[in-house]
């Protein structure tokens, strides 16, 4: 609890602040949007937090989102694949990407930053290649499939929980159990803290690191799928641009240290929510110009990280 108390307080305060300054903040429509966007980015953030816990980084998330987001409609509409097959193929490719990253990092001993930076360039490049740079989408077809992202679990007449948010809760629960209750979760924390000591304790560190990249890419694929099902239009040249940075920012806000070894799923999800509430605030507050969005988000992130560091330093003393 204490690990994410800070960010939880931040979220609650931001939430209250925004509901005061933004007229329509509490409208059902806006709350649904907020939950849906938190869910989409939250899934990516949970994925990257696995990698960050091992002390690694994955910069290719946005490009995997692009690959899946453009690839799935491309397979379905241009090549008439059954949707189920296309989705399975997307996840298989994402897992292969994770395995490939893991192989390069653990066996060839390349740095995660470099490996995934190349991935960032390659997967987007490949997507632009096979789609011939054309915008992908489902048009007005496949609305049943799109329910996965656009559907709602109606709670009241006006308000419903978006399906992606339910998916986030499920994925979050699995991630939480994995990290806190299983042997593998313990191994991830151990090796993120001290890979050499973990290896000396008989842990298959290489396999565990690879697993974290597979999880990260798979969740990026799930995110990419939901993004395209929701948005229905993906330009290969910029679909998912910078999403890895949003995911990393949410993970860091949620208490993951880029040095590895720490992080909580709940904190990361709250971190993703904070980013979305912030953006929402910028949108709703008329005196905040929307092109200042990056400035505000970056500034708040920096303040949060500084505060976190100061608190930790005090605890250490």
């Amino acid at each position: 609890m204490k690990k994410f108390l800070g960010i939880l307080v931040t979220l609650v305060l931001l939430y209250i602040l925004t509901s005061i300054i933004g007229d329509n903040f509490l409208s059902a429509y806006n709350q649904e949007q907020l939950l849906k966007r938190t869910a989409l980015y939250g899934l990516l953030a949970i994925g990257v937090s696995f990698v960050i816990i091992t002390g690694g980084i994955d910069l290719s998330i946005g490009s995997v989102v692009c690959l899946v987001g453009c690839g799935v409609p491309w397979l379905i509409t241009q090549h008439q694949w059954p949707p189920v097959m296309a989705v399975i193929a997307a996840f298989l490719v994402a897992m292969m990407i994770g395995l490939w990253h893991g192989f390069l990092i653990t066996k060839v001993k390349l740095q995660p930053f470099v490996v995934t930076l190349c991935g960032l360039l390659m997967y987007r490049g490949a997507t632009r290649g096979f789609t011939e740079d054309k915008t992908q989408g489902f048009g007005i077809t496949h609305s049943e499939l799109r329910e996965l992202a656009t559907g709602k679990l109606q709670l009241t007449e006006q308000f419903g929980l978006p399906v992606p948010f339910l998916l986030l809760l499920i994925a979050g629960a699995f991630a939480w159990i994995f990290l806190n209750k299983t042997v593998w979760g313990r191994y991830l924390f151990a090796l993120g803290n001290n890979e050499e000591a973990a290896r000396l304790s008989g842990i298959h560190t290489d396999r565990m690191v690879t697993l974290s990249y597979v999880i990260c890419s798979s969740l990026a694929a799930l995110g990419g799928l939901l993004f395209i099902l929701d948005g229905n239009s993906a330009q290969p040249s910029d679909f998912g641009n910078f999403y890895e940075l949003y995911a990393i920012a949410a993970a860091v806000l949620g208490g993951c240290s880029l040095r590895g070894g720490s992080g909580t799923v709940i904190g990361v999800v709250i971190g993703a929510a904070v980013m979305q509430v912030l953006k929402n605030m910028i949108n709703l507050a008329d005196w905040l110009k929307s092109h200042l969005e990056f400035l505000v988000v970056g500034g708040v992130l920096l303040v949060a990280v500084i505060a976190d560091e100061l608190v930790k330093r005090r605890v250490r003393k």
Partner: peptide, 12 residues
């Protein structure tokens, strides 16, 4: 809890 307030904000 926050959803209880959902829909409270009316346009001025």
């Amino acid at each position: 809890g926050t959803f209880l307030f959902t829909g409270c904000g009316e346009k001025k």
